[in-house]
């Protein structure tokens, strides 16, 4: 269920330029409750988006076409960026280099503009002309359906799992909820809370604002925010003694080495990867290697066929036996 309690008026509006703030504040509740993105582009119409729809906004609310919509001025964008960065672009350089800023509540603001390079890598984004405010909504309960498939009841441990889905398929949401469930523990399944470590390279899982998780990731969870995955996993192993490590979008060589290290250290790994089928994954050398070595005991496939986070299939890693399939209507 979407958590409609996210109050855009309280959490997002303080970061908008006064004119935009006035427009968004006067939108009807139903519209705000489903809004997922607010798009600000220089001298183009103000737009809000949700799953499967969008609406242009004029000064008095939603309008039919781009002609009547409110066009963003440079001043609107400048003020918004100033507020989002807390008047301190100098303090957010690392985040801007990644292309986004995070605001309290874990909401992410994607940025586009002119990129300044230094030695071939992005130094900073200047003249920001486009901003996408993505509203982070925690989907509490997203992992409850999947979780029972991930527990080894015999040994009382959690399987190494890989979550696979195309973009916007709900991977991160599922990872976040699994972190919460594993960390808090579920009494019904006889599962006590375990120590969870999240290596959150893009600050998406826990939505950290200045290092503090803004979304519920559980009571026994430690979050390494904005930390490269491979280094983060090693750091976790060395000093935070996690029982489960959660990270997203693996695919680089060093990620694979770190995962090997964790698996051999007896720590459960739950990770995600882009892809829509097993074939997709097998085409990527690093993921293929990890699968061939049978590191992952459970593969969970998601899609956005019936909205983000549609559970398609769960298969057992070693022999590829399906445990759940949406096509046959459930558990096998």
């Amino acid at each position: 269920m979407l958590d409609a309690s996210i109050d855009i008026k309280k959490q997002i509006c303080p970061f908008l330029a006064p004119k935009l703030r006035a427009i968004i504040e006067h939108l009807p509740y139903e519209l705000l409750a489903k809004t997922e993105e607010i798009r600000l582009r220089f001298s183009r119409p103000l737009l809000i988006c949700w799953a499967g729809g969008e609406s242009y906004l004029g000064e008095d609310g939603p309008v039919a076409g781009p002609g009547e919509a409110y066009l963003l001025s440079g001043e609107d964008l400048r003020q918004t960026i100033e507020l989002i960065s807390s008047y301190s672009l100098y303090a957010c350089e690392d985040e801007i280099r990644q292309g986004y800023l995070t605001i309290p509540g874990g909401h992410r603001v994607g940025l586009a503009g002119r990129v300044v390079l230094e030695k071939g890598t992005i130094k900073v984004i200047r003249d920001i002309n486009s901003c996408n405010i993505r509203i982070a909504r925690q989907v509490t309960g997203a992992g409850e359906r999947v979780f029972p498939f991930l527990i080894d009841r015999r040994l009382g441990r959690i399987f190494h799992s890989l979550i696979i889905s195309p973009p916007q398929g709900g991977k991160t949401t599922l990872l976040r909820d699994l972190a919460r469930i594993i960390s808090d523990g579920i009494g019904v399944l006889g599962q006590r809370g375990q120590k969870v470590g999240i290596v959150d390279e893009r600050s998406e899982i826990a939505g950290c604002y200045r290092g503090v998780p803004q979304l519920d990731v559980g009571l026994r969870t430690d979050v390494l925010d904005a930390c490269p995955k491979a280094e983060g996993i090693m750091l976790m192993l060395r000093s935070l003694s996690p029982q489960v490590i959660i990270t997203d979008e693996i695919g680089r060589e060093e990620d694979a080495r770190a995962i090997e290290e964790a698996v051999h250290a007896g720590v459960t790994i739950i990770a995600s990867a882009h892809g829509s089928s097993l074939e997709d994954i097998m085409h990527r050398p690093i993921l293929r290697e990890l699968l061939e070595k049978n590191y992952f005991e459970r593969l969970v496939f998601l899609s956005n066929k019936r909205g983000p986070g549609t559970l398609e299939m769960i298969i057992e890693g070693e022999r590829g036996l399906p445990l759940y399939s949406a096509n046959t209507g459930g558990e096998l």
């Binding site: 100033e82 960065s85 807390s86 008047y87 301190s88 672009l89 100098y90 350089e93 130094k123 900073v124 200047r126």
Partner: peptide
């Protein structure tokens, strides 16, 4: 105030 990157601000 708050304009530009580290170098610029400095």
């Amino acid at each position: 105030w708050g304009q530009g990157d580290k170098d610029g601000q400095r």
